[in-house]
């Protein structure tokens, strides 16, 4: 498996190019949406660029699950249910969901997508 630092460096470049941010801003803890200003269309761009940079194939839903938070089985009154949390944990094994689990509001979900989560996801694909 490629080392964390090697993958991190390439992910940094991908995010610099996709989001127009400076290298220094792309820290492991930085969130894509909150800290780096990613919008929904940027996620597609990031997937495309990761595939190219690492020569891997990614289904967009693997990295950013698209239908969990719109499913009434998984979300009630703006909060993710136990079943929803279980589904997210299964779909996003590379992502640390502990902080989100304490909050569970749908609006704060984008904050789970950190640079660290992307690096771990890519490592799992290599």
């Amino acid at each position: 498996m490629a080392s964390y630092d090697d993958v991190f460096e390439k992910v940094q470049t991908v995010l610099e190019d996709a989001l127009g941010v400076d290298k220094e801003e792309v820290t492991a803890e930085a969130t894509l949406v909150g800290d780096l200003g990613a919008e929904s269309i940027d996620f597609l761009d990031i997937v495309f660029r990761l595939e190219k940079a690492f020569n891997i194939k990614i289904q967009q839903s693997e990295l950013f699950p698209d239908n969990v938070l719109t499913d009434p089985q998984y979300v009630q009154e703006g909060k993710v249910t136990d079943a929803g949390m279980a589904e997210l944990r299964q779909r996003l094994p590379h992502t640390n969901l502990d902080a989100f689990d304490a909050d569970r509001t749908v609006d704060s979900f984008p904050n789970v997508f950190t640079v660290d989560a992307i690096v771990k996801f890519v490592q799992s694909k290599l």
């Binding site: 929904s40 269309i41 597609l44 495309f48 967009q60 719109t70």
Partner: peptide
């Protein structure tokens, strides 16, 4: 450039 197929967009 990047293009989206908007019927399969993620926003619903």
């Amino acid at each position: 450039l990047m293009f989206s197929h908007i019927d399969s967009n993620r926003s619903g």
